[in-house]
Design a protein around this nucleic acid. Sequence first.
RNA 1: GCCGGCGUGGCGCAGUCCGGUAGCGCAACCGACUUGUAAUCGGUAGGUCGUCGGUUCGAAUCCGACCGCCGGCUCCA
Length: 646
Amino acid sequence: MPSLTLPEGLTVELPEGEPVGAALPKGTIAARVEGELRDLSFVPSEAAAIEPIDPRSDDGLHVLRHSTAHVLAQAVCELFPGTRYAIGPAVADGFYYDFDIPDPVHAKDLAAIDRKMRQIVKRKQPFVREELSRADALERFADQPFKREIIEAGDDADGETAAGDTVSVYTNGEWADLCLGPHVPHTGMLGAFKLTNVAGAYWRGDERNPQLTRIYGTAWASQDDLDAYLHRLQEAERRDHRKIGHDLDLFSFPEEIGSGLAVFHPKGGLIRRLMEDYSRKRHEEAGYEFVYTPHITKAELFEISGHLTWFADGMFPPMELDGGTQYYLKPMNCPMHILIYRSRTRSYRELPLRLFEFGTVYRYELSGVVHGLTRVRGLTMDDAHIFTSHEQLGDELQSLLTFVLDLLRDYGLDDFYMELSTKPEGKAVGSDEEWEDATETLRRAAGTIDVPLEMDPGGGAFYGPKISVQARDAIGRTWQMSTIQVDFQFPQRFDLEYTGDDNARHRPVMVHRALFGSVERFFAILTEHYAGAFPLWLSPEQLRFVPVADRHVEHCEELAAKARAAGLRAVVDDSKESVGKKIRAAQLAKAPYTLVVGDQEAASDAYTVRDRAGTESGGVTFDRVIDGLVEEASSRSIAQTDFGSA
RNA sequence: GCCGGCGUGGCGCAGUCCGGUAGCGCAACCGACUUGUAAUCGGUAGGUCGUCGGUUCGAAUCCGACCGCCGGCUCCA
């Protein structure tokens, strides 16, 4: 297994006629020659400067993972004769290979496949590259229809178009695959891998094509790296909001209500209300006005908006009432806000008009994609629509971006980048000029913000381009958070106007924006970000009292009343259990702070504060505890208060 | 929606392959103990085995449909 670490930017001079590997340190797995990734067996036509590939680098991991995918395919073919193999690329953290296997393969078969792979690794089979004409390649892969299709389409195994009339084939042992390479020198250089799961996947990613069996695995440059990755997976599992939501009694999905429809329990409801209340406060300060709209509407509204044209499949089917009139559950709030704007004539003096609503919408998500609180069928958007003049648009977008980032930071997220999504060709309305104009305005606004901007070509909504803010959570995963969409289309479709200072009619521009996106999803993201240990200001319970014996309950209640009077959420655990058990219960409930109260405390006003990390601070007066927690909560701090060591 | 897996008291699981009418731990409740920083002891109650249908003398167990969950694919205004 490779284990070397190469100096950055090392290059080596290679004499003519020598294979690349001859000049490089042992343990190198591939090389870059004239900018191209090559096998170590590659012989350049003339002397060249070559750069070794470190197995830990992105290129190195790619080669390693792709090579491991070959061994996976080889193992599956040996175990299941008659297997037809499709493609097997490296992906983030690992690799997969798609197969059409005669017998069904299940997760429990992975152990056997893994064993076979390790046998192949032991054989140390060299990966040998050869160039074949298309005709020869078609013959070589006569019984492999997927490979033949790739050859006939002129693509290589990774779906990129290969140059020239030949294709490259890699053989190790008896097994051959159509592949651009490069690969590690031999199978013995692999080993830090693990097969992770089996799933279905469509050939070429198209749902009209046959479904194949996809086997996923992960592979790393060393066992330590693999272990670290598996640990990250465990950490993500530990933070899973579905598990935490259940364990902390925050929310559930009753089967009787239906898939993707959540109910929030008291504790989850409290956290959610605290989230929403703070958002409301900030929106109010930022000049938003609050509106309410119904959950159902006649079809006509979404015919005008175009949603029924583009997204009818994603809407719940209509209800027929009043002699055939169709009503829909709303999948979006925008048309309703538009009708509020349109309810009377508007003056330029009212712009920008910012209408805000925690608007609950319903979307018919496919049954297979519903996932916890992050992908649901009923969700509440922190939705606002800003009606503005063209002239005000740039300034409005700029202050909006600042507002968005500022607010997200208050919830404890601080690592962002932005993505600019442009016109989705073939699925968009409006002229190129309008799109270009809107895109450019967004780009300029983003340029004034000190957060990196990336492009997402074709990722816009059908009515306009958007900027989305992506946030990295505590374990480095990125989540799409806020979206800001510029829209010239709806003002036209709904014939929106305002009277300008020139006494003429003008058309406003609309900005659609949601900061949380969906409250439910944001709730899930925060739950995972904090692993259920919400910052004090969002904690459903802030201070827990544990009486040592029954006779201390009354004193605890008095203290709790004082804490409540100071604005804290305090509870007393009066269960008839041992102190140890009550401490354990507090830890499991992720209670931010716990005070054990017995005879000593009653006599001395000196408390030992235990935080949910298990840290204890002794000799703290009750007033200091209260002051510390009030300060921590009101500052929305994400750090626990330090009361000094015991 | 598609492929695969799964569904047993509130939760976590055993029993399912090889049909013979459910068991463990935690939680809940009751009692004893009155406890000093992650599980005190004893007892009680709780399940038409996701739903409906089929096979069978007999179904948690075999078959089918549906509902729901999980992992992917596709999708995400």
